[in-house]
Every structure is written in structure tokens, then in C-alpha cells.
Design a protein around this nucleic acid. Structure first.
Lengths: 221, 221
DNA sequence: ACTTGTGAAGCATTTCACAGCC
DNA sequence: GGCTGTGAAATGCTTCACAAGT
């Protein structure tokens, strides 16, 4: 199979995981790796890895495995990480500021090119080495700023309006940290990161574990 | 069906979503709501909502729908959100600080009771209204602090060590913001929030959209 | 008339298992 | 012998569609 139909969403997320692993392996000087070895590094079973890769082509040699460098660069291309991605962050609050300074972005193709807010006390101040600009000027400023990715780090009530502005400014992918659904036209990719939902699910699991332990101790009396 | 087997993971995440919606509806004074109405509020089809709820019991009246207040309190119980959850944050960097001040935690059952770091320049300082403590004292301090949830906001290299400390300190749920897998004993729940993976998947989708548009314009020449 | 709860159907994703290659 | 790539099987999740309840 070659360019193929389309890969499932979970596969895409795992490709990113494989990339992280491969970058480390390359740094450590590994030459080749089997799907089983890669799997034990990143917690995925080998058949899953082979299936994931098979959506995009054939990358390995039977008997040997994969060449680390080669797989690394092929996956980097597939994920479009061989080019710079300019990112605008909307919302210069706690979260926006933390994201702007996120260490994971150094030595990555992501470059924070703009930070926007609607608070007059923040506009004009510097955050890291970027000036906070008025969100109302987003479309105008992005003509030369050319951010293709927008990160929403504003309160829920403002999220849809900010999303509309981002789309209007030409952004084609949005990462939404606001706890609220946003609607965007087709052709714009969106992903959500919802802290409250994550932590609430954890609470549920804690409760389940507690129940099981009660059931267990009930059983042996 | 009543207490039932176990609900799929995506169902649990959606329950949290329904809760957020129901809290708003209750504030707005809504008395009853149908699965179709709730669905259009939160972007989920009605059959999905009914199926999700069916894992936990019967909550509605045919012909009428659900009583907002009643469904709200039943789901709150199911998700264990009718009790306080004490949270410790490990890592007082940008992200840890932002999470400690996260506005979504006010008016919620989550209470940040401790912030830990290993950096002597930070230990002893105040963050919001909590003192930053030495992460080496985690187990000791948590004897009276009694945090049941830990949030990891440290660099990848330190994540596993921090996870071990959290488990040792009696934490039973971990939200991991570090870009690294962590192993925990059974009975401890873990969820990951991986900024880099999210944004890398977005890049892939941006590329796909670009390809499709090329294919489209190639077609009509 | 309208809506729930739920088996059954449909679809998506993961895992198995093995032919073919190094 | 060891490993990949992949159909086929298994599992998991979502959607359909309708009997039963109000």
C-alpha cells in the first residue's frame, strides 16, 4: 500500500508519539529498530505500529526493522513538521503566558509569532520576547505575521468569537484550551484540550477503584 | 439497566461535558430537557447521550425528557464530584503556576492544596496563596495534606520519578502534562495532556487540507 | 405526539497470525 | 531466525430504529 486512503485519528496521534521516540533514539545513536523495540519504548504493541505505518507506505526491511534516521525523516515529512509553523496565541492570561513560554517549542518547528489580548492593561506589554497586541487587530496584523495555527487561551464565553477572528485572519488550525465548543468552517482543523474534563474523568476512575476495593474486602468476611 | 458493567472511556469524557452543559442550563433556570436539546447544546447526537446515560441507569421520562436539576445531581454523584478533591501540583514552572491559578477550579470541587518543586530558588516562595514546598518532602507532607490527585508539570525526564513519589504519597489519580509515558501500579488512574502531540496532529490535518485543495484545482484545468 | 431506553446493525480501531522477505 | 506488511478476526464504539411509556 502507498499514499492510501486516510489514517484513523488515533494513528495520527501515535505517529507524533513515534516521532518523539525516534528523535530520542537518533540522539542516542541508534541505527535501526524493530517495531517491537519501538513499541516497548513508547508503550504501543508492535502490530499497532506496523499497521499505523502501513497507512503511509512501507518503511521497514523484513528481518532488520526500520532505519531510525530514515523513518524519522519520513514521518517528519508526513506530519508536515519539516517546515516552520507560525503560531498565534490569543489570551495573555496565566495559561496563554505559560504556553507562550512552553519549553517544548524550542528546538521545534513551532514559532510563537504573536500574542493577543483584549485587556488594555496587557496590550503593549512584552511577554517573553513578543509584544501583546490588541485582539481586534488580529486580521490586520496577521497579513504579515502569517500565523497558520491559533491557540485559544481565553475564557469560555469568548472562545467562539476568538475562533471566528482566527478563521478570518487566515488561520487553518486551532488548538482550543477554552472549555467550550467552537464551530469553524470546513478546512479548518480544531483540537480541544479540556483540563476540567480530564480531571473529572480521573475522579470517576478514583471512585471505581474505591468501589472495587470495598467489594473485595466485603468478599472475604 | 442499572449499575451495569462499565462504560467506555469516551462516555466518561462526555458525561463531564453533559455536566458542564447542565450546570449552565440549571443557572439559566431550565426545568427539563430532552436528549435532542441537550445534544444540540453540546454537540453530541441524542442517541449517543441516551446510550451514555444508559450505562448508569434510567434518568428520563418518556415524552418529557430529563429533569435538569435531577440529572445534574445524579451525574455529579456518578462522577464523584459531590465531594472535595484535594490536588497537589508538582512543578512550579510556567505551566504549574498557570494550572495552580486556573480559574476553572474556583467554584469546583477541586482544591489546590500543595505545590512542589525541586528548585531551591522556588521552594519557600508563595504561588497564589500556597507555599512552594520541596518535592522531596511530598510523602511526608501529604500525610496531613491528603491530596488524592496529582498534577505533573515537570520536564519529561523527571516525570516518572515524580509519578513514583506521588504514588508513594498516596495519590490515586495523576494528570500528566509532561511529554512522557509514566508507569503506575494498578489502582492508580492516569491521563495525559500532551500539547506537542495535539499540535503536531493539527499540522498533519493542515497538510491534508492543502493537498485536497491542490487536487481540486488540478481537476478543473 | 413526543421522548426514553435499548437490542441490533453499522462502522472504526485494534489485534492476530502468517506469507513473504532478509 | 527474525522481522515486516497485511488480510482476516476480534473488539469497541456509535448510530439506527422501534417498542414501550407518558
Amino acid at each position: 500500500m502507498q499514499p492510501s486512503g486516510k489514517a484513523p485519528e488515533p494513528t495520527l496521534s501515535r505517529l507524533s508519539l513515534y516521532l518523539r521516540c525516534l528523535r530520542q533514539l537518533a540522539k542516542d545513536g541508534a541505527k535501526t529498530i524493530s517495531s517491537a523495540q519501538l513499541g516497548s519504548h513508547c508503550g504501543v504493541v508492535s502490530a499497532q505500529i506496523r499497521k499505523d505505518l502501513s497507512y503511509f507506505g512501507e518503511f521497514g526491511k523484513p528481518g532488520t526493522g526500520y532505519e531510525v534516521q530514515q523513518l524519522l525523516s519520513r514521518l517528519t515529512e508526513i506530519m508536515q513538521l519539516d517546515q516552520e509553523h507560525r503560531v498565534a496565541i490569543i489570551g495573555a492570561g496565566n495559561l496563554g503566558a505559560a504556553l507562550a513560554g512552553y519549553a517544548g517549542f524550542s528546538d521545534s518547528p513551532f514559532r510563537i509569532v504573536g500574542i493577543f489580548d483584549n485587556n488594555f492593561n496587557k496590550i503593549g506589554r512584552m511577554l517573553w520576547d513578543v509584544e501583546i497586541l490588541d485582539v481586534h487587530r488580529l486580521t490586520e496584523v496577521n497579513q504579515h505575521m502569517r500565523a497558520g495555527i491559533g491557540i485559544i487561551a481565553v475564557p469560555a464565553e469568548a472562545a467562539q468569537e476568538v475562533a471566528d477572528r482566527l478563521v478570518d485572519a487566515g488561520v487553518r488550525a486551532i488548538l482550543n484550551f477554552a472549555p467550550s465548543r467552537i464551530e469553524v468552517p470546513p478546512g479548518v482543523a480544531v483540537r480541544h484540550v479540556d483540563l476540567t474534563r480530564e480531571i473529572e474523568v480521573l475522579c470517576y476512575h478514583m471512585g471505581r477503584v474505591a468501589e472495587e476495593q470495598e467489594a473485595l474486602s466485603d468478599a472475604d468476611e
